[in-house]
Simulated scan of single mutants.
Amino acid sequence: MEIRWGLVPDMTGTQLLPELVGRDVAKELTYTGRVIDGTEAARLGLATRTETDPLDTALSLVREITGKNPHAVRHAKRLLELAGRMGVADGFAAEQTAIRDLIGSPNQVEAVRANLDSRTPAYRDPAPASSRSTA
């Protein structure tokens, strides 16, 4: 929409939009300031999906994600954020570091046991040292 005000997208909009929707679509949207609806946003990759009850869907997704090994989720989040921002070899090395950190860890062992026992895993997730109170 910035083009309508004689500006260009900021906050890395020109840098990230082509990665999300492709260079040609990014150019069209940036040059025209065309407004799109949720269905088109999902089709273009700007939204994951549209839902009739977005709050219920979001809460369901949160429950699903928080039911996974929190350390694996953190590693996956970091690795996915790095994707395309570093070389493939460096990304592969980062994956290997994450795997070494996770394999055999208490939460990874719990994931395996819970799956084999057909039960809900009981993960432990102590707060990182940086978020603990020093009082």
Rank of each mutant, 00 (worst) to 15 (best):
K68T: 03
A93P: 02
G87K: 06
A26V: 10
K27S: 10
T97R: 12
A111N: 11
R100A: 13
H75D: 02
I99V: 14
T32L: 13
R23S: 13
R85D: 08
Q96D: 10
S105T: 00
E81L: 11
D37S: 01
T134E: 15
R132H: 07
S60L: 06
F92Y: 11
S133Y: 06
N107L: 01
L29E: 07
P126V: 02
A98K: 07
A127R: 14
D37K: 02
R23Q: 13
H75L: 01
E19Q: 12
L61S: 06
G22Y: 05
E40V: 01
W5S: 14
E19I: 10
R85F: 01
L20H: 02
H71V: 08
M11E: 05
E40L: 05
A58S: 09
G84E: 04
E64I: 04
E19S: 08
L61I: 09
R78K: 04
E51Y: 09
L16I: 09
Q96C: 04
L55D: 15
R119S: 05
A127H: 04
Y31A: 12
K77A: 07
P70V: 04
R85P: 00
V73E: 07
R100L: 03
R23C: 00
R63C: 08
D37T: 07
L59D: 09
R63Q: 13
M1T: 13
D125Y: 03
A127P: 10
P18W: 02
I99N: 02
V88T: 03
T32R: 07
L29T: 06
R132C: 11
N115H: 14
G33Y: 09
P9S: 12
E110P: 00
V8R: 15
L20P: 00
R100Y: 04
G84R: 04
L59G: 03
L46D: 00
P126M: 09
L116V: 11
G84F: 01
R78L: 03
V88I: 03
T50L: 09
A93C: 05
L46Q: 06
A72W: 06
L44I: 11
A83I: 01
